[in-house]
Structures are given as structure tokens and as C-alpha cells.
Amino acid sequence: MTVPHQRLSPDPALALRGLVKSFDAKPAVAGIDLDVPAGSFFGLLGPNGAGKTTTLSMAVGLLRPDAGQARILGYDVWADPAAAKARIGVLPDGVRLFDRLTGTELLAYHGLLRGMDAEVVDQRSAELLDVLALGADNRTLVVDYSAGMKKKIGLACAMLHAPRLLVLDEPFEAVDPVSAALIRDILQRYVSGGGTVVFSSHVMAVVERLCSHVAILADGTIRMRGTLAEVRGGRSLEDVFVEVVGGRTATGSELAWL
């Protein structure tokens, strides 16, 4: 096992500085500065198309930003990718897994890819498959998994090498309530053990229940950030969110034909 120890510096787990990204001259992310304190459970909120996935992709080295910096535990993702990438586990959204492998094979693949010893991979994979109720002797290909099972195996792959920072894009999408509760438990235990979780979501209930810190993203910029209590300010998170994002409510006169 060669997972590096967390440096004893006050570096934030994830620090974004002036991140900008445009697709075909259309800005997707227009200058984001964000600090995720180590040991926090950080929720990145935003409506569809706000730039959540784009931001997280740039933070973990999947998408090259037009400008700006991303640092993971003090290591620059784009200048020193090897050091930064060794310290994170990622669950991307809208990205396929190597789904022609069985779940067990996929875990073994990710473990060896992270440079872990085969014995450790064997032991941890069996444990993860058991805890996530995926079945250690299940030989179904991941492509034939249900959507919820795919999320779970993706999460297992992201956690296998015990990273200090987990970046999860929509981890609760398409997950049934039973699995969601299980995932919540696992993530909470991970954070209480000193890990940091950054995840994106637009399900307010989950965020309110889990997060210590939140940031609200809309149209590629951060509209609001802080601890959960600061952002909420005594109201429900959903009210704050709709107000900040500026949603519209139906008056009832349109769609009369429905």
C-alpha cells in the first residue's frame, strides 16, 4: 500500500482559483474560487446545467480549464498530476465505467491501477462488495447492472485505495432509498475518520442531512457559500436555493391543455 499520508499543512482539501471553461465560446464555468476545508462534508448545489460537472471535472483533472488553478491537498492538479491524483477518489457522472468487466474484476482493476498490493486489493474488494450488497461472487457484467448498482460499484472503485478526498458527482442519482441510506452511512463514517467528501447534487433533503458546508452554483458562478447554517440562515435550504437561483413558479394559466 502506497497511499501517501496527508501532509501536516493547513492546506484545504480542495482549492479552486479562478477556474474558467467555455464550450464553443459559450461559458460553462465563469471564474470559480472555492475552498473545501479538510474534513468537511461539502455539497455543491446547482440546477441542471449550472456547471457542477464541469467544475468537478476540472478539479480532478478530467477536463483542462481555459484558465485558473485547482489544488488537491496542496498539489496542483495540472502541474503535478501524479501527486494530486494519487490522493483522490472520483465518481464521475455521465461517464461510463469499464462495464464489460464484472463488478469484482472492475474493483481489482481499479485497485491495481492505483498501485496497490494484490493481497490488499483482494481483501478490500471482498469487504466492499459485501458491505454494498453487490455480492462478492456475482459474475454479472457491470453493463447489465441496474443504475443504482452502477453507482454503488463506482463508489466502491473510488474508495478502494482509501483516498483522503472523495469527489462524487451526483452520487445519489438513480439510487433507491435503501442503497442511499447505506451510501450515506459509509460516507459519514469516512468523514468522521478524517476524510473529505465533495459531492454535487440537486436533492436538497440529502444535502441538508449530510453536509457541513455548501456552495450554490448557477450559470457557472458561485452564488452563495459557507457552512450549512450560514447559507440556510434559519430558512429551509430549498427556499434559499430557489431564491438564489431565481427559479420561476407556474401560475396555472399556461399548459391549460394538460
Binding site: T102, A108, L112, D122, S125, R139, T140, L141
Partner: peptide, 16 residues
């Protein structure tokens, strides 16, 4: 889904 016989081998041995 394709039914495959359950394997008793260790995860790494199943892949490699």
C-alpha cells in the same frame, strides 16, 4: 443479464 457461474477465486485472480 448474462448468467455466469459464480467464481470462488479472489478478485485479482478473476481479473488478471
Amino acid at each position: 443479464p448474462r448468467e455466469r457461474a459464480a467464481s470462488a477465486r479472489k478478485p485479482v485472480a478473476q481479473l488478471v
